[in-house]
């Protein structure tokens, strides 16, 4: 089984994407999509890193909802800052020390940070020990770091453990 379907998650995602792209559940597309979904991941494997195991689907769903909620909150926040006088915006850089070690986990965290409250991830330390984050309105750097670690990094640690 493992040899037949080496990357079950990627294959499933590809299959669903194929069916959505074609907007059909016709038998022909089910088979063609399945063939492509099974054949593509092994062909692409030499160009990618080995994928880490994901666990705790419950934590993934919970994190997704937290992030969705924060995206909307962050947009209202940023809209307020943009519409207000510019002098009130105090941007700044802050370093977030990382407990995550998996590259994919760090990439996910960087993406989440960019999409949420007034923050953008700029760079990862060469030794992956911290993430450089730019905040649009930085009034309390320590609280921002604590917030990021508590809201997102803890969940990612569980998922990528």
């Amino acid at each position: 089984m493992r040899r037949l379907v080496p990357a079950p998650l990627s294959s499933l995602a590809l299959w669903i994407a194929w069916l959505m792209l074609n907007g059909t559940l016709a038998p022909g597309h089910l088979v063609l999509g399945a063939v492509l979904a099974l054949a593509l991941p092994p062909l692409l494997a030499p160009y990618t890193r080995p994928q880490p195991r994901l666990r705790r689907p419950g934590a993934i769903v919970r994190l997704a909802f937290v992030v969705l909620h924060d995206i909307i909150r962050s947009n209202i926040e940023v809209a307020r800052l943009i519409l207000g006088p510019e002098a009130r915006i105090r941007p700044g850089f802050v370093r977030v020390p990382l407990a995550l070690t998996e590259p994919q986990a760090i990439a996910t965290l960087a993406g989440i940070i960019t999409m949420t409250p007034g923050t953008l991830s700029c760079a990862v330390a060469p030794d992956r020990s911290y993430l450089l984050v730019h905040a649009l309105d930085l009034d309390d750097p320590d609280r921002l770091v604590a917030d990021i670690k508590a809201r997102y990094e803890r969940a990612l640690l569980e998922i990528f453990a």
């Binding site: 995206i71 909307i72 962050s74 947009n75 940023v78 809209a79 943009i82 519409l83 510019e86 915006i89 941007p91 960019t114 999409m115 007034g118 953008l120 730019h134 649009l136």
Partner: peptide
């Protein structure tokens, strides 16, 4: 609002916040 921020704000780092988040939403 995102594009307004892009046109209005005075430094690149500040401008980047508007479009990336707001335009996406």
């Amino acid at each position: 609002v995102g594009s307004l921020g892009l046109a209005k704000l005075s430094s690149f780092e500040k401008r980047l916040h508007g479009p990336t988040k707001a335009a996406t939403l």
